[in-house]
Design a protein around this nucleic acid. Sequence first.
DNA 1: CAAAAGTCCTTAATATGTTAAATATAGAAT
DNA 2: ATTCTATATTTAACATATTAAGGACTTTTG
Lengths: 140, 140
Amino acid sequence: MQKLEDSLTLQLLRSRESAMMFFRPILQETGFTEQQWRVIRVLNDNTQLDAKQLAERCCILSPSLTRIISRLEADGLIIRIRSEHDQRITLLSLSDKATQIFKDVSPKIDKAYARLIAKLGDEKMQQLSSLLTEVIRLSP
Amino acid sequence: MQKLEDSLTLQLLRSRESAMMFFRPILQETGFTEQQWRVIRVLNDNTQLDAKQLAERCCILSPSLTRIISRLEADGLIIRIRSEHDQRITLLSLSDKATQIFKDVSPKIDKAYARLIAKLGDEKMQQLSSLLTEVIRLSP
DNA sequence: CAAAAGTCCTTAATATGTTAAATATAGAAT
DNA sequence: ATTCTATATTTAACATATTAAGGACTTTTG
């Protein structure tokens, strides 16, 4: 029995790095960081979200999200509104400028993703996705 | 066909978070960060490594490793030596203090890892590990 | 052998990760 | 209505991630 200890977590880290190599060149071109792009992508799909939901879906902790949003807002990419019903809540949405940028960049991301799937194979991709979902469910 | 774009990378991120939840309480007790523990664990298994190899195996970039090592050295946990053959190279190894700490903490990590495997199941664990290895191989 | 090119590590600058604590608002309890 | 508690976000402090650039040493080239 080999020493495995945290090797699963290391494998997950390495494999994510490998997968990200398909997308990093595109992000490099745009000047966005991984996290900024995740925020933009999720907001593009959801129109409007409060900070908590956005953090959850982007897998970014609230303190990090606060800073990310502040920058994107300063760059005119995100619109920040206080909820009417609950003044604690910040509602977030993309500006037209950000929506347009997403439309321009998105096809390149899609192509890179298609290359990734093609390299790994559809079936293995499905299996992997399914197993990862189970791992995700381990934490309540 | 659903929007997937970078969802594999997100799944890898989330699943790693789930897996880490088995270990985080232990690291919290010790006061080590994830990265510091990776460095200690890898050095425990390899006795002595140069910074480049260590970074590679820990999946930590060189600039980050430099600071991590500096802190651990200041805490008397790591010993830094210049290589005789090549003065550019820094050879790194654990101090006795760090070796002892590893021996004390390691069993707890092993138990947590066993719980993780038990929850997911041996077979799925094998499948997952195998698929992740393939993803890792995608990037040359 | 001296200049050029390459390698290893480090520093610098900016962005994010992580935990704890502070703020502000909302809802429940007395 | 006031206090207590809970929730949503932010700030603070320290550690790491990422890219670019610098310095020291090696190897290659001419």
